[in-house]
């Protein structure tokens, strides 16, 4: 465990350096790229100096690294706010979306996977597996648009996008930025329902895409654990069938799921970006796309840095949880 903790900064360092180099490889500089043609050359020069782009490259690099440590992810060029502020503002939306999607993906994966293993090669098992492959292969924006067409447009059941209805006075109601939590805190049923109905389509879209891997992993693992020696031994001791299934086969099959969750997290963020764009979900992902379109590379660097730090932290957490779940991993 300590070893992993020691490695985290090393990984982070490598990722950040790569990011920095990538963005500097682009011709020109962030300020010129974003604002050329909109401001006079003198103003651009002024902005450049203010952003510290005059400094030698290694000074910029060091500033960047120390900034990350302090939680300062730089300043946007086309937006007066610092990236940190943008993140704090928009991240709750992305967080709600990704958590919902992950919970859905794991639940779906575990249920379909376990069911498939138990009833191996039954029509339901085959159907479940095909379903898993289809959702995994389909691009998330395609699935999203399809969902919008069917449920929002044709059936009028759910909203096409956004996070909350126009009628809801969100400015007054918001506390944490996590709308579902805020609705509970304000004990406002209407608010809650509204937030939830807006979350459903994008959440399910993203969740489905990620669930494919879980379905397969859980199914394969359970097929193995069902045949395991300790399962046979438990049966030989007269332990009841349902307990053998659940306590021994199922529990052991789930052990790798925690690790998979960690591995899938980065994919989840990537999928979130596309999902947010499709559903006009006002989160960090769609903001990233906006900034890319505006060529505001400073903001892009800041947000991507934030994502990178997040992935590293989540990986560490996953390792820790793994140790709780599997006694063989602890020392």
């Amino acid at each position: 465990m300590l070893g992993r903790l020691a490695l985290a900064p090393v990984f982070l360092f490598i990722i950040l350096t790569t990011l920095f180099v990538l963005l500097r490889v682009l011709p020109g500089d962030p300020v010129t790229a974003a604002l050329a043609g909109r401001l006079s050359p003198a103003q651009i020069e002024e902005r450049r100096q203010a952003s510290g782009l005059d400094e030698p490259i290694y000074v910029q690099y060091l500033d960047y690294l120390t900034g990350v440590v302090r939680g300062d992810f730089g300043n946007a060029v086309t937006d007066p706010r610092a990236v940190t502020e943008i993140v704090l503002d928009l991240f709750p939306a992305t967080f709600e979306l990704t958590v919902f999607a992950m919970v859905l993906a794991v639940t779906l994966g575990v249920v379909l996977g376990a069911f498939g293993a138990r009833h191996r090669d039954d029509p339901l098992d085959v159907g479940g597996r095909m379903f898993g492959i289809l959702v995994y292969a389909a691009p998330v924006f395609w699935t999203g648009i399809l969902a919008q067409l069917v449920f929002a447009n044709r059936l009028n059941l759910l909203p096409t996008g956004n996070r909350i209805g126009a009628r809801v006075p969100i400015g007054d109601l918001e506390i944490t930025g996590f709308y579902l939590v805020d609705a509970v805190l304000r004990t406002n049923g209407e608010f809650f329902v509204d937030a939830l109905t807006h979350l459903i389509l994008p959440g399910i879209t993203l969740g489905l895409v990620i669930s494919g891997v879980f379905i397969r992993i859980v199914r394969v693992n359970m097929l193995q654990t069902l045949r395991a020696d300790y399962v046979e031994s438990a049966r030989a001791r007269g332990v009841g069938d349902s307990r053998v299934l659940f306590r021994h086969a199922f529990k052991n099959a789930l052990v790798p799921v925690v690790t998979i969750m960690g591995l899938q997290f980065a994919l989840l963020l990537g999928g979130a970006i596309l999902t947010e764009t499709t559903f006009s979900w006002p989160g960090l992902g769609s903001a990233l796309v906006d900034f890319l379109n505006r060529r505001d590379y400073a903001a892009v660097q800041g947000i991507v840095t934030f994502f990178a730090v997040l992935v590293v932290i989540v990986s560490l957490l996953i390792d820790f949880v793994n140790g709780l779940v599997d006694p063989r991993v602890r020392y």
Binding site: Y230, R237, V239, H248, V325, P327
Partner: peptide
């Protein structure tokens, strides 16, 4: 029937297998 067998297994008859390394649930 299965309930009868379950009752007998472990209580009236014990079965000890060959490979002890894999016969216990690693999570328990």
């Amino acid at each position: 029937s299965l309930p009868v067998l379950r009752e007998i297994r472990g209580k009236d008859v014990a079965l000890v297998f060959q490979e002890p390394m894999t016969r216990l649930d690693p999570l328990m």
